[in-house]
Amino acid sequence: MNEFSDDIIFIHRSSDDTDKEFHATVGHIEDILIEDKFLELHNDFMEKHWQEFEESEENKFIYTDIFKEYQATIEKYIEEELGKKVKDFNMLAFEEELKKRPNELDSGIFDLLSTFTDFIQFKMKFLDYKAMKEGNTIDFSNDFCVSKYVLIGDK
């Protein structure tokens, strides 16, 4: 067994075009996420809004505005960058494809992508960030971290 054993259990061999396209797109996303420009944009966004968030179960209306802004900036940025790299890229179609393969991705990427469509994931991301900012945690694993996605066929 090696460090990638978790991946190996779930990954199917890429046999058809959809698979190949999907994996190529994921590779591009990984590249985008580690670029300084993205990290800065992302960091600015989190810094601007985290203080609005509270640990309570009920949600404030302003969360919805922030969620929309998040989609309009962070998600849009990734979508545009992908558009430059992938011909006829369609974010919605990709997210649909992603939902069918929850176990195929590095969980960092999957978690990030799910924050674009799932409000609860989005809120949790901010609460985690808040906890980190307030020093309530020494666990930085929720910080942006992308490890390389590995495909059996590639090795």
Binding site: E57, E58, N59, K60, F61, T64, F119, I120
Partner: peptide, 9 residues
């Protein structure tokens, strides 16, 4: 009374 909104899945 709810001043914002709740979500449950």
């Amino acid at each position: 009374p709810t001043l914002g909104f709740n979500i449950k899945t």
